[in-house]
């Protein structure tokens, strides 16, 4: 139980996917303008991360390892994730339209999110068990959502600030992200 908590919290805070591993920067910069869309995107990423882990872990250990095909993991994982996201989107649209409206619209955007591929590969690299992998994916997803939500608040403030023209847009956003990242550095050493 203790290992699980450590994995969950370190994936969420100390090894935050966006702010310390630099995965999923594109949606972090693109979809963090409004609180609503930040929450939706965060939930969708968490959901896809957990599902992707549940799908790729058995494939890796059940199909690739026995056949000595470990080196194919990149090709197989990204294909499986892309297919799976497409499948979930279609299924959700048909069966639960209300959930699709709030969550499904983000699904096509995260097929090629590097955080999703990253979490599945990291689980394998770190030698986690199935349960640990799922917990790691949950922590990673929650950490992603947390940083997105915090950052959407920062960006709201920035909209009313008078920023020099050369810094407007992406440069100012990146510098703000750097300050948020400094605040997350406070968590480092929490589990050492």
């Amino acid at each position: 139980m203790k290992t699980m908590m450590v994995i969950l919290l370190s994936a969420m805070l100390t090894d935050n996917f966006v702010l310390s591993k630099f995965m999923g920067i594109c949606p972090f910069l693109g979809v963090s303008k409004k609180l609503g869309s930040a929450t939706g995107m965060g939930l969708a990423v968490t959901f896809v991360m957990i599902c992707a882990t549940c799908v790729t872990y058995p494939i890796y250990h059940g199909i690739l390892v026995p056949n000595g095909l470990e080196y194919l993991n990149t090709v197989v994982f990204i294909l499986v994730i892309a297919l799976f996201v497409q499948l979930v989107e279609t299924a959700m649209k048909k069966t639960i339209p209300s959930l699709y409206k709030s969550l499904g619209v983000y699904l096509p955007l995260i097929t090629t999110n590097c955080a999703v591929l990253g979490v599945t590969v990291l689980n394998i690299d770190n030698g986690y068990t199935f349960l640990q992998s799922v917990v790691n994916a949950l922590g990673g997803g929650l950490g992603f959502m947390l940083s997105l939500i915090i950052f959407s608040g920062v960006r709201k403030k920035m909209e009313y600030a008078d920023i020099p023209e050369m810094f407007r847009g992406v440069p100012a956003t990146l510098i703000a992200a750097s300050i948020v990242s400094v605040s997350f550095m406070g968590f480092s050493g929490l589990f050492s």
Binding site: L19, S20, F22, L174, I175, S178, S181, M185
Partner: peptide
């Protein structure tokens, strides 16, 4: 550190 990466790229 990560924070410096964001800062440098922004600059």
């Amino acid at each position: 550190m990560p924070a410096g990466g964001f800062f440098t790229l922004g600059m």
